[in-house]
Design a protein around this nucleic acid. Structure first.
Lengths: 197, 197
DNA sequence: ACCTGAACACCGTTCAAGT
DNA sequence: ACCTGAACACCGTTCAAGT
C-alpha cells in the first residue's frame, strides 16, 4: 500500500513514544515504514516540518476549539486549559520538548496560544496585554512540563541526584505546576483590579 | 602549548557566538583548536558536559553570588535578578537554548534557581512554596528568552511571518518580559497576603 | 598526561533514475 | 505520483598506539 503523510506522522509518534526524541531519526522512521530514507521527503519537507506535525498531533486533544462557550469563570477556564495542555504533553514521551522546539521553530499550527489568551481576555486584560500574558503562561507550562518529563526519564533510567526530600515526585510536580498557575491567576486578577480603578 | 579545559570551553563559546548551537559540533570545535576530535574527550566527558560548562559560563555573570545583602525590596530584587538573567542569555547566540537544555540535563552548577528563590522567600512565601515559585519564574524567563532569541534569528536570517503590528520587536519582547514578571510578582504578593491572614 | 589515527555506527538531505 | 539507489557531507564517541 502507498504511503501517506498521515502514515508518516503516525509512525513518527509511535517511534517517539517508544524510543524518545533523541532516537527519532528520519532513517529509523524510514526503516520502520519499510521504505528508503529519501521516500519520506516526498511526504514531508524536512525533519523540522515532521516534528511540527507531531507537535500538532500532541496538541490537538488539548487545544481543540471549544464548540460551545464554557459556563466557567475565566480563572477556572485558564486552569483547565493549562492543565489539559500539561496532560497532553505528558501523554507522549518527550512531548513537552517536541512542542517547545516546534513552537520555537514556528512549526505549530494548533492555536494553543490563542486558547490561553481567551480566558485572559475574559479576565479583563487589555488586548495588548492578554497576548503576552498568555505567552507567559505557555512558557511556564512548557518549561515546567519539560522539566518534569526530563526528570521522569532521568530517574527511570538510572539514579537521580536525590537532592533532599524523598517525596513522591509525581505529586510534587503537580503541586508545583498548580502553584505556578495560581501565581499567574492571582497576578492577572490583581492587574485587572488596578486597571479598573 | 597544551590544551586546557578552559581553552576548550572558551573556544566552544566563541563557536557558539559565531555559528550558533546547531553548528557547534565536537569536530568543528576540534578543528578550531587545531586538534583531533578525540583530544577533546580528554578534557571533557562528552558534548553534554561541554554544553553544561558553556551554560555555566553564560550564567556566571548574571548569577554570581552577591557579596553584601542588597538594600532593595524583595520585588525589586526579583525583577533585577530575572532581568540580569535575561541579559546574560541574550548576550550569547542561542544562550537561552543552551542553558535550558543544560538545565534539563542537570548539567548546570551555577545556582540560578537559588538566586531567584532568595527574593521569593524574602517576600514571605514558605520554604515549601518558594522553591517551585522560583522555578516557575525561571521557566518563564527561559521560555520567553528562547522565544525572543529564536525570533531574532528567524527574521535576521529571512522573512518572518509578520503576523500583525509592524512594531519594533525588541521593545515588544522587553515589554512582554516585564509584564510576565509583574504578573509573578503580583501573584506572589497576593499569596503572601492571604497566607498572613 | 595528553594527543593522534583510525575506526564504528550513525545522521539529514538531495536527486537522477526507475515504475 | 511516488519511490529506490546511491551518494554527499557530515555527526559523537572510543581506543589502541604514540610521545
Amino acid at each position: 500500500m502507498q504511503l501517506t503523510r498521515t502514515d508518516v506522522v503516525d509512525a513518527a509518534v509511535a517511534l517517539l513514544d517508544e524510543y524518545g526524541l533523541a532516537d527519532l531519526s528520519m532513517r529509523r522512521l524510514a526503516t520502520s515504514l519499510g521504505v528508503a530514507p529519501g521516500a519520506l521527503y516526498w511526504h514531508v519537507a524536512n525533519k523540522q516540518a515532521l516534528l511540527g506535525a507531531v507537535a500538532d498531533r500532541i496538541l490537538l486533544r488539548a487545544a481543540a476549539p471549544e464548540d460551545r462557550p464554557s459556563p466557567e469563570d475565566w480563572d477556572a477556564r485558564l486552569l483547565r486549559v493549562a492543565g489539559a495542555l500539561r496532560d497532553a504533553l505528558l501523554s507522549h514521551r518527550d512531548g513537552a520538548e517536541v512542542v517547545a522546539a516546534s513552537l520555537a521553530a514556528r512549526q505549530v499550527s494548533v492555536p494553543v496560544r490563542e486558547r490561553l489568551a481567551e480566558p485572559v481576555r475574559a479576565a479583563g486584560l487589555s488586548e495588548d496585554e492578554a497576548e503576552p500574558a498568555a505567552l507567559a503562561v505557555l512558557h511556564f507550562v512548557l518549561g515546567a512540563t519539560t522539566d518534569e518529563q526530563s526528570r521522569m526519564q532521568l530517574d527511570s533510567l538510572g539514579v537521580l541526584p536525590d537532592d533532599g526530600a524523598p517525596v513522591a515526585l509525581a505529586t510534587d510536580a503537580a503541586a508545583g505546576f498548580a502553584l505556578g498557575l495560581t501565581l499567574f491567576v492571582d497576578g492577572i486578577r490583581h492587574r485587572v483590579r488596578t486597571l479598573e480603578r
